[in-house]
Design a protein around this nucleic acid. Structure first.
Length: 475
RNA sequence: GGCCUCAUCGUCUAACGGUUAGGACACCAGGUUCUCAUCCUGGCAAUAGGGGUUCGAUUCCCCUUGAGGUCACCA
């Protein structure tokens, strides 16, 4: 089997969303699965749309999600340059080959004239075909006009690794532009040349290119290039509606998820299983498992809706699976301001207590703030508690006093505290829902917290008793 | 409008032509000595419609419907 070389070829026109990224991920997985090479190529032939910083952004995404690039703008490689704007002379050579063979010609029309043809076709409800207006004696191409491909319309049948066997008639083949009047090649031309020059074995791309494939096949023939294996990915759709996921309708930057504390492995597992599965009932995958099991044949043909709730679950799953020490390292940027002066061992204990209820790391502050600072007394926690609101203030106060007495003499290990809490249940005859809620509210002033004994053990004697006193004073 | 693609629970999906159509997320109910979670148990919920082929169709074929893509000097 020939060497597998896949590429991801984004244009640097802004951030990368989940839909874009998945195409890159699948190309990467395919290369890794076959022990091949993964190439990043920047398609920056539209200078008007280029966005400053996109190039770095794309590299950041791959870097942060742990997808290493074998050849690319930053890494280099023996088929460079890997930026299309630096390959202009090469496209001229390919173009000359077509001109010499009589398969390319200068477009003599103005943009307005072509637009008029287009509108005419639209009015007549016909698809627009430039070749219906192909000039009989085109001028010599001097670079100031667009250079067009002289197509040879014919039917095609080809195999797509995802979509299966496809076929079209000659009516979809047209004379598309190879080189624009600004001297830059179009995607349609440049990617064909580059894929050939870079010996790409598999082209993986989105469904929006499916309709253009026959044109590409026509061009491959004209250039005597053996076409690579083609694989078309269905679109990822936005959460609501059926529209392809796009920047306009609020698709989020992949790096935003990273910033919010979604773990790289969770993002990779989730995105990979959006339109791919291994045929078993396995729901989450490590990167190694994906590399081992990935195949284009099991990629879904239909579009998949992006459901953030599932991502949330996958991420929570990975957070719970992660060793505490590792999770603590990852949590570094997410602690609340109040924790600034707290020692590592303390923060790590806190993290251990909230690990199983953490969905993404940016939740750490709201889940842990009371471990680092006394929160203001919140009377609604008691008045709104369906057990506690039934009791008189005096009863609550007496109960809390009694609890304090017992807790005061604890050594503040979680075990001892739990024993004392159990004794208090017997002594007071109260239900846990009453006694524990009261103490929990007093010591945390938070609507939710980890289990009581463990929380108090981490908070320590001074803080626990101080907060109980503050609550007593308010009752 | 032409051409192309797609179609299983709300969502992601599984099912050599033979299954009570399976799993997961979400949701609902119960359990785990307090809250929020985790975990466990149970529940709700799907083959778009119509024709064929076949002993038998989610699966193969045709039509309809619906959704998406494309018809750029954007990719």
């Amino acid at each position: 089997m020939k060497q597998v070389r896949t590429r991801f070829a984004p244009s640097p026109t802004g951030f990368m969303h989940v839909g874009n990224f998945r195409t890159g991920l699948f190309a990467w997985l395919l290369a890794r699965h076959h022990g091949g090479t993964f190439i990043l190529r920047l398609e920056d032939t539209d200078k008007k749309r280029e966005v400053e910083g996109s190039r770095q952004h794309i590299l950041d995404v791959f870097n942060m999600l742990g997808l290493n690039i074998d050849e690319g703008p930053q890494t280099g490689g023996s088929f460079g340059p890997y930026v299309q704007s630096e390959r202009l002379p090469r496209y001229k050579e390919w173009a000359q080959q077509l001109i010499d063979a009589g398969r390319a010609y200068a477009d003599p029309y103005t943009a307005e004239e072509v637009q008029a043809f287009r509108e005419q076709a639209q009015k007549e409800k016909r698809p627009f075909l430039y070749r219906n207006h192909r000039p009989e004696n085109p001028p010599t191409w001097d670079g100031s006009q667009p250079l067009r491909f002289k197509s040879e319309p014919k039917p095609y049948e080809w195999r797509d690794e995802v979509m299966g066997d496809l076929k079209t008639g000659p009516e979809v083949i047209d004379d598309f532009i190879l080189i624009k009047s600004d001297g830059y090649p179009t995607y349609n031309f440049a990617h064909i040349c580059d894929d050939a020059d870079m010996q790409i074995s598999h082209v993986i791309r989105g469904q929006e290119f499916l309709a253009s494939v026959p044109n590409y096949l026509n061009l491959y023939e004209a250039l005597s290039i053996e076409p690579p294996t083609l694989a078309t990915m269905p679109h990822i759709l936005g959460a609501d509606g059926n529209k392809k996921l796009g920047k306009r309708d609020g698709a989020k930057d992949v790096l935003d998820y990273v910033r919010e504390g979604y773990l790289p492995e969770a993002l990779v597992s989730f995105i990979a299983t959006l339109g791919w599965n291994d045929g078993t009932e396995q729901e989450v995958f490590t990167v190694d498992e994906l590399v081992q099991k990935f195949s284009l044949g099991r990629v879904q043909k239909s579009g998949a809706r992006f459901d953030e709730r599932r991502l949330l679950w996958v991420n929570g799953h990975f957070i719970r699976e992660t060793a505490l020490d590792t999770l603590y390292e990852l949590s570094n940027d997410y602690w609340p301001e109040e924790a600034a002066s707290s020692p590592d061992y303390y923060k790590k204990q806190v993290l251990g207590l909230i690990q199983e209820r953490l969905k993404f790391l940016a939740e750490i502050p709201e889940l842990t703030r009371f471990f680092f600072a006394d929160l203001a007394l919140n009377p609604e926690l008691i008045s709104g508690n369906k057990q506690l609101k039934k009791l008189e203030q005096a009863e609550l106060k007496a109960l809390l006093e009694q609890a304090k007495t017992s807790i005061e003499s604890s050594d503040f290990t979680a075990e001892d505290l739990q024993n004392r809490l159990n004794q208090l249940l017997e002594q007071t005859g109260q239900k846990p829902a009453v006694l524990f809620s009261l103490i929990r509210i007093a010591t945390t002033q938070a609507p939710a917290s980890p289990s009581l004994a463990e929380s108090m053990a981490v908070l320590g004697r001074d803080t626990t008793l101080r907060r109980i006193d503050m609550q007593l004073a308010a009752l």
